[in-house]
Design a protein around this nucleic acid. Structure first.
Length: 377
DNA sequence: GGTGCCGGGTA
DNA sequence: TACCCGGCACC
């Protein structure tokens, strides 16, 4: 959480920049490189320090003059002096502005944009690095929401909410956007693990809970995830979860084992993705009859199952009237929600129509023993 | 027992 | 992702 704060003098990973001043000067006589500057804020990351330097070099090269005489003529160079003097605030403002602009123009790539934008700023390097850096390196201080927020955040389609400037700001300041959930309603997180159902008020807490208690691993969440999957019996059955978890290299896997109970609008809008069929969320709505469900939810019968075999989420679970299901134990919601299976349609299916001998005439779905696509019910 | 298709495995 | 199939619920 705090780790990303740029201003603080050894923020990086709490690693103090012991010889911040001494380290480079010796090696790099070129004052321009301004390594010392970046450092104070950047935290003495040996690795990180590479960033600024090459940059300076680059600049110099391109500028033709700067590079030539490494000596004290950096003044002409805009970026260099800038970071030199105002280590923090002023710089930030600039960065902010720039980033804001870029993010506006390229909103979809929230993460990419700012990163790119900063790349030109030698001074901003340190903390930028920190941001991007995977949890591993700095996880020490992190609680449950370390790096994932950035990396996974942008990768996860879960939040329909567009890249808000606000979020951008978070990002720029190095604050891990608070799980991109600024819902007005009270949010609770319920563990979906079999027979657990524990409810916590914070996502990070829940993640930790899952990691520690269910995935059975302190730091190596991934490992635990895999192992657990192997045991097949333990995890609740959410198709999406499994799939996605796999896709995401199990990073943030815990996400798939808990659900949010805020019953607020954004829970719904959060996208079907997060609406794992098993998720009791589906049953929550009764409390809010007036809720305007997003298209897909509102439509009672447009079943996605037709595409199920194609990898669509096919939250068949949506079909049953939401009112009946109780959000009790997340363990076996599949069973709870009305019939797990939909009634068989009357329509003749490929199999029947064409017969086994003409299997080649069947629709692919039928061939694959999936829900018939050709003769919909 | 035939059928439809879910869930999961394999390439 | 495409394809296949075990197995189960429905008829």
């Amino acid at each position: 959480m705090e780790a990303e704060r740029p201003p603080a003098p050894g923020p990086g990973c709490g690693r103090p920049p012991p010889r911040a001043a001494g380290r480079d000067p010796a090696a790099a006589p070129v004052p321009v490189s301004a390594p010392p500057q970046g450092l104070p804020g950047g935290g003495g990351f040996a690795g990180l320090e590479f960033a600024p330097e090459p940059r300076a070099a680059d600049l110099g090269a391109s500028g033709t003059w700067a590079g030539a005489a490494g000596p004290p003529t950096p003044s002409a160079h805009i970026p260099v002096p800038a970071q030199r003097t105002p280590p923090g605030k002023a710089r930030l403002d600039e960065v902010m502005a720039a980033a804001a602009l870029t993010s506006l123009s390229t909103s979809p790539l929230l993460l990419g944009a700012p990163a790119a934008a900063f790349s030109t700023e030698a001074g901003a390097e340190p903390w930028k690095e920190v941001l991007v850096r995977p949890p591993g390196s700095c996880s020490s201080s992190s609680s449950g929401d370390w790096g994932w927020d950035l990396a996974s955040d942008q990768s996860s389609p879960s939040t329909p909410s567009p890249p808000l400037p606000l979020e951008a700001a978070h990002f720029l300041f190095g604050e891990p956007a608070p799980r991109k959930r600024k819902s007005s309603a009270q949010v609770l997180f319920q563990c979906l693990w079999k027979r657990c159902g524990k409810v916590l008020s914070t996502a990070s807490g829940m993640q930790r809970h899952i990691r520690l208690v269910h995935l059975g691993c302190g730091g190596a969440g991934r490992l635990g995830g895999r192992a657990r999957r192997a045991t097949a019996s333990a995890p609740p059955r959410h198709v999406p979860s499994r799939r996605q978890a796999e896709a995401e290299q199990s990073d943030g896997e815990e996400d798939f084992y808990y659900t949010e109970l805020d019953a607020g609008v954004d829970t719904l809008t959060r996208g079907l993705a997060s609406l794992s069929p098993a998720s009791p969320i589906a049953s929550a709505p009764p409390a809010f009859p007036s809720l305007e469900l997003p298209e897909p939810l509102a439509r009672p019968h447009v079943w996605h199952r037709d595409h199920a075999y194609q990898g669509c989420l096919a939250p068949v679970r949506l079909e049953p009237p939401p009112t009946t299901v109780r959000a009790c134990v997340p363990a076996l919601p599949t069973k709870l929600g009305a019939n797990p299976r939909k009634p068989r349609g009357d329509a003749k299916k490929c199999r029947k129509v064409y017969g086994m001998d003409h299997r080649d005439l069947w629709c692919t779905a039928c061939r694959w023993k999936k829900a018939c696509q050709r003769f919909l019910d």
